[in-house]
Amino acid sequence: MFEARLASTLTLKRIVDALREILNQSTLDCSDTGIQMQAMDNSHVSLVSLCLRKEYFEKYKCNRNISLGLDLKSLTKVLKCANGDDAVTIKAADKADKVELSFESAGKERTADYELRLLNLDQEHLAIPETEYNCVVHMPATEFARICRDMATFSESVVIACSKEGIKFSASGEMGAANIKLSETTKGEVSIQVDEPVALSFAGRYLSTFTRATPLAEKVKIGLAPDVPLLVEYPIEDYGYIRYYLAPKVDD
């Protein structure tokens, strides 16, 4: 038996919004410690990893590990039926072929229950090694979203170069070129830790997709190391995260 209750549907809506542009379907792995999800996009260029620890939930019960294969489009349709301030309870019996979502209005005067058919998804699991990133940058999530949007105007490829002087985003195409550089700020909005400078090229389309997670967090963490995927991490309060990994482009 699995049961998890969140005080607000809004955060669940935001989490699904952050996933559904990259993934059509995904499997939530529920255990007594919380919910994990990991999946590559269809083109196998990026990987998204979601972690929600049980402390994130108002109520959490999971007697036995259970995998819930969900169609994210269908889940979005169900979530549209709920108000952001409704409480939501997700329930599934052991070996169930459906999941139940119950919404309760803030004043408790309205309840609505929906059933969603579960999918049997073959999912590859990849072991994500602990990586020591040579450059770790924290910046406002809205700033990162703005940079990704502005870069996309110029080119499909974005070069991210990080050194002690700052983090620089560059794109150049037929129209011209764009360079945006952020330095560390004394107020701490932007922090930049650099062991070794790194410069890597990435597909801007994916970076823009990651910024769908912007409403979830004030700050985004970016991790860069030579010849490994870029890390873009959005914390979910103090109880979890969405991490996006993006494979770099390399010179042919």
Binding site: H44, H125, A127, V228, P229, Y245, A247, K249, V250, D251
Partner: peptide, 14 residues
């Protein structure tokens, strides 16, 4: 011309 690598090549299957 930069070539896109696959994410799967960086992580091992479990």
């Amino acid at each position: 011309q930069a070539k896109q690598t696959s994410i799967a090549s960086f992580f091992t299957k479990v």
